[in-house]
Write a protein that binds this DNA or RNA. Structure first.
Lengths: 110, 110
DNA sequence: GCGCTATATATCGTCGTACAACATATAGCT
DNA sequence: AGCTATATGTTGTACGACGATATATAGCGC
């Protein structure tokens, strides 16, 4: 599986995690994921924006337009209370999943 | 992301890993994944069989029918040399991916 | 002025894949 | 005869990833 495939399931977890410490806009999330993962995870904008809309629609995020002179408008997203609850659950299920995979795949030989 | 979504990217890694120690047939792989992950990862047959065909088509697996009296025929898959090479690479990229996610998501609070 | 890059958001069309549902076949248990 | 377990397979739907493309603003080099 390519690194593209690998990130499929974890995209939401990454977004929610990054928003935990404060509002971020789409492009910023994109760049943060790339730099924090040292390039291992890269987000295509054609996936990111629709994903943000979905999360907002589910009530986990709340977006708000911020306009500044001499700048393209930005949409800042913040975690809702429900979003925080979901994040907690997602973190737990992620670590459970990783543990389960480790039991099947065996220890790392990296 | 549901545990269903989570496993999307790792399905191939799981199959390849299980076949590392010897030939297995589809249903057996299904059951082994379920039991080794203690129920955390479950495979739908409608995903498993097409996946096995794909892997075989790519030359990573080789299947062979085994018929026994009083039993439904089984198709046993074994890892090819190419499959072993791919498995090695997949294992490495999986652990890199997990490390990258951990840097973004933070430590486990499970 | 022009091309390039970076910042920032957005959509369209294609393609792959997961899975519910259904189908088939064998055997044992009740 | 009906249920469960074993075992493989297909069809149809639906969702999501991503390449390509578009729009808008600003700065830099030439």
């Amino acid at each position: 599986m390519s690194s593209t495939d690998l990130k499929k399931g974890s995209a939401e977890l990454l977004i929610l995690s990054l928003l935990e410490r404060g509002p971020r806009h789409g492009y910023e999330l994109c760049k943060r994921i790339e730099s924090r993962s040292r390039g291992a995870v890269r987000f295509n904008v054609a996936s990111l924006y629709p994903l943000l809309y979905r999360l907002e629609k589910r009530g986990w995020l709340q977006g708000r337009w911020v306009e500044k002179a001499g700048q393209r408008r930005r949409r800042y997203y913040r975690l809702t209370t429900e979003g925080r609850t979901v994040l907690k659950a997602r973190r737990r299920s992620w670590s459970e999943f990783v543990a389960a995979v480790r039991r099947i795949v065996g220890p790392d030989y990296a």
